[in-house]
Design a protein around this nucleic acid. Structure first.
Lengths: 205, 205
DNA sequence: TGAATGACATAATTTGAAATCTGTCATTCC
DNA sequence: GGAATGACAGATTTCAAATTATGTCATTCA
């Protein structure tokens, strides 16, 4: 029944398949083992627990989100355009996933729900990408002299309405594109060079 | 057992109490009737269905959120300060509710989950309040000449990270205050007068 | 006469016993 | 000898029966 050696990769692929087919509530490790033609005990040689297996599947899925963004983050485009592109891409990737296959999206959402650790890493990863774009923009003089990291977090927060899966139910409403464009304009304006007359808060320093 | 005439108000109060005590999953209209010392049939004379009753309770709760904000929105403070104050207040009201009584917050969250209509009105109400502040700021020359309504929506979206109940699990993390302050600064900078050198998009008009 | 009742049909929820799943490990297999 | 197996204990899930809830309405009550 089995084609070759039992590797974590093959188990991962099978688990992904089983999850896709059965959903997160019904997929069992026995199912995964069966799909591979082995006993479920064998799976436990490669993954310490069902949770570890689920985490690994989720990690893979999230990496497929992060990878194309990495390319944009490190592109040579001017920082403002690059930031727009990156945020637009993040939004599109997520939105395409929900609209394209809502069930699968829900499945991964369920995995994410009890994988704070993995999600934390993913978020950190995304925030670092934004940070690098902001830092580039500050260095090139395209952006005000902001704290790159803190500003990146603010931008991540500000756009969560358009990328946080818990708000996916809004993504198919009307006027979404316009709302997103409007938000981007506002944020980019806030980063623009012009020395906004700071009436409050600390004095530039 | 009953003190006076059976009014919608008395039923509402009892329903609120029962919901608080039993939680949204176990509160029944028989419980509400019992608390009032009447038969459950009587409740249906005043509310068409259990859903209608739950909606009314939710509406009351949301109005208690909106009322104090209304006062700020119509205050005489300068628009930028007023906007900061308003957004800060919205955040604090919600955060105090979660942190103060998580169970009750969860109860209202459950009510909200199947009350799109009511929530829609609530959101619309909040957005209108922001719109009025922005409009005032544009009129007074404190803000750029933005489209008040569209910008208000963008600001509402941008801050949802700090007021949308679905993200309440983040509100007790460290650095929340700083993150919120940072976001506010960025948004206010984006509204500031300075004619940001718009390299893209439509030409000012 | 208009408000309140409670018996009733249908729908939803609870319950607990049976079935299935997770994770371990002594044993088998190549 | 290292990888795979499958029987097993304890935890979790399923499913169907039984209970409880919702919403209606003919009747009672004041």
């Amino acid at each position: 029944m089995n084609d070759s050696a039992l590797t974590p990769e093959r188990i991962l692929a099978a688990a992904e398949d089983v999850l896709r087919r059965y959903g997160p509530g019904k997929a069992t490790v026995v199912d995964v083992a069966q799909a591979l033609g082995v006993s479920h005990g064998s799976v436990y040689r490669h993954f310490a627990s069902k949770v570890a297996l689920r985490d690994a599947v989720l990690r893979g899925w999230l990496e497929r989100v992060t990878a194309p963004l990495q390319a944009i983050a490190t592109s040579r485009a001017a920082a403002p355009a690059r930031l727009r592109q990156w945020l637009g891409a993040l939004r599109e990737i997520k939105r395409d996933k929900v609209l394209g296959d809502p069930e699968l999206f829900a499945t991964y959402g369920a995995l994410a729900a009890d994988a704070r650790e993995v999600i934390g890493e993913h978020v950190e990863h995304l925030q670092q990408q934004i940070t690098s774009i902001i830092a580039a923009g500050v260095a090139s003089g395209d952006f005000r002299k902001v704290d790159a990291r803190a500003t990146a977090l603010a931008i991540f927060d500000a756009t969560s309405r358009f990328h946080y899966p818990g708000m996916a139910h809004l993504w198919s409403g009307p006027g979404e594109d316009a709302a997103f464009a409007q938000l981007l304009d506002l944020l980019l304006a806030g980063l623009a060079l012009a020395p906004a007359p700071a009436k409050r808060r600390k004095p530039t320093a």
